[in-house]
């Protein structure tokens, strides 16, 4: 009986592990993808803002503060929320510089 008991036990543990794994792994994977997407967007926005800043003749203090904030968030590497915040700051800075350039 002891051998078959271990079969039941190990089998039960494996089933539980498979259940946990099959819900957890896709979820983790999706989270990773969401994070990478958010950072991709954020980095592209920061790059655009940097270009706009270089193209602008006048200094816009508000925009520079926003971009500095976005860059510091990006330097800290965070989750989806941090990336979204960085992207939002960079876009606003970008808009401010473009507006300043158009004059």
């Amino acid at each position: 009986m002891s051998a078959s008991w271990s079969v039941w036990l190990v089998g039960g543990v494996l089933l539980a592990a498979a259940g946990v794994g099959s819900t957890l792994v896709p979820r983790l994977r999706a989270r990773g993808v969401r994070r990478r997407v958010a950072w991709s967007t954020a980095r592209a926005a920061i790059d655009s803002a940097a270009v706009s800043r270089d193209a602008c003749a006048t200094r816009v203090a508000e925009a520079e503060r926003l971009l500095a904030r976005a860059e510091s968030i990006a330097a800290d590497r965070g989750g989806v929320l941090a990336a979204e915040e960085a992207a939002r700051c960079a876009e606003r800075a970008d808009r401010l510089w473009r507006a300043a350039r158009r004059g």
Binding site: R36, V37, A44, D47, S48, V51, S52, A55, R101
Partner: peptide, 23 residues
């Protein structure tokens, strides 16, 4: 120049996204 540079930046980001298998 600025829109062109920004566009090239976006293209680089798109290349990276494609290569790292983003959606």
């Amino acid at each position: 120049d600025p829109p062109l540079t920004r566009g090239i930046g976006k293209l680089r980001a798109a290349t990276e996204a494609l290569e790292s298998g983003l959606p």
